[in-house]
């Protein structure tokens, strides 16, 4: 994964040896380290449609190519499905979370994606899903697509824009809230085979996907291309995390045990520390439920010695103790 936040080759040297206490859950070694994460700005929107099919079409399209802020400017994903009783207009809906490094980028990406992926999608409407610390434009500028035929309606201090389109009206709220959030929470899973690490990650992703206020922005929630900072090629700022590549086992930099055949990462963005704590705990629990018997060797986190961000998620604290 081309992410600078998962990059440091030398991170193991930053962890004092005395901290390497044993913690095993169902035979899976939990490394005594922390996953490092950084502040982001996040917003939530609610997309509704005539049915889930069309609401999901819009949500999936607008969260496409939104895996990493490095290449995509924004990280986005579907948070969950919403029942008719949970949406402003009483139709089936999808909650979408978007994360960016700053408010301006978040707003620009949101508008571009709403304009190209939701406005265009038959029967959909879009609403604010967050009160937040401040407001960013949702339909505020999109309304000009109405070419003067747009009208607004203010209900309960919320302004909605009604833009005439070929299937009737596209209804969108003028603004949505945004708040400080956290990006880059992560877990790294080591297993004896590719199929076993996939199985473990899928179990963790399923468990975490049940939770509100988080998304797993990478394809299917998993990441195979962890990266390190820098490259032998001067034009590249990041390159494959070769210490974790199983086909390079035995080389001096490689840190994998000989019985580890594959490593997979799960990246988590969340609205608060508590949300990430809970998600990581559920993820680790799901992986450890499979246990060493299913080939899971170890779980660790992306630790960069505090250089990446102020949020440190200590795996053993998350799991509630030094040893189990």
């Amino acid at each position: 994964m081309m992410k600078w936040r998962n990059a440091s080759v030398a991170r193991w040297s930053n962890i004092p040896a005395q901290n390497h206490k044993l913690m095993n859950i169902n035979g899976v070694f939990i490394e005594d380290t922390f996953a490092e994460a950084f502040p982001m700005r996040a917003t939530r929107i609610i997309i509704t449609g005539i049915n889930y099919k069309w609401a999901r079409h819009a949500a999936e399209t607008m969260t496409g190519f939104a895996t990493s802020v490095i290449g995509c400017k924004v990280e986005a994903g579907i948070e969950r499905e919403l029942g008719n009783h949970e949406t402003p207009d009483g139709r089936p809906g999808i909650a979408v979370l978007l994360f960016a490094t700053d408010r301006k980028t978040l707003e620009a990406q949101l508008q571009a994606r709403i304009g190209q992926c939701v406005l265009t999608c038959p029967t959909t409407a879009v609403f604010a899903g967050l009160e937040g610390e401040g407001q960013i434009a949702l339909g505020k500028n999109l309304r000009y697509f109405g070419d003067g035929y747009q009208t607004s309606k203010q209900v309960d201090d919320h302004r909605y824009w009604r833009i005439p389109v070929m299937d009737g009206e596209f209804l969108c709220e003028e603004t949505t809230g945004y708040q400080t959030a956290i990006g880059g929470g992560n877990l790294l899973v080591f297993a004896r085979s590719l199929s076993q690490v996939l199985l473990a990650c899928e179990a963790a992703i399923d468990a975490m996907s049940m939770l509100p206020n988080i998304i797993l922005p990478f394809p299917g929630g998993g990441v195979r291309s962890g990266s390190k900072v820098g490259s032998k090629y001067k034009t590249l700022s990041a390159s494959t995390n070769h210490p974790y590549c199983p086909t390079l086992k035995g080389l001096p930099d490689n840190v994998l045990d000989k019985n580890v055949e594959a490593v997979m990462e799960i990246v988590i963005d969340g609205l608060s520390v508590e949300d990430l704590n809970l998600a990581m705990r559920r993820g680790i629990e799901a992986i450890c439920d499979l246990g060493k018997a299913q080939g899971i060797e170890k779980i660790t986190g992306g630790n960069y010695g505090g250089k990446l961000g102020p949020h440190h998620f200590y795996l053993r604290e998350i799991m509630g103790g030094d040893q189990i």
Partner: peptide, 13 residues
């Protein structure tokens, strides 16, 4: 004749 999405919002008010 139309089904207008803003009407359920207005109905709350």
């Amino acid at each position: 004749r139309h089904s207008l999405g803003f009407l359920p919002l207005l109905m709350r008010d």
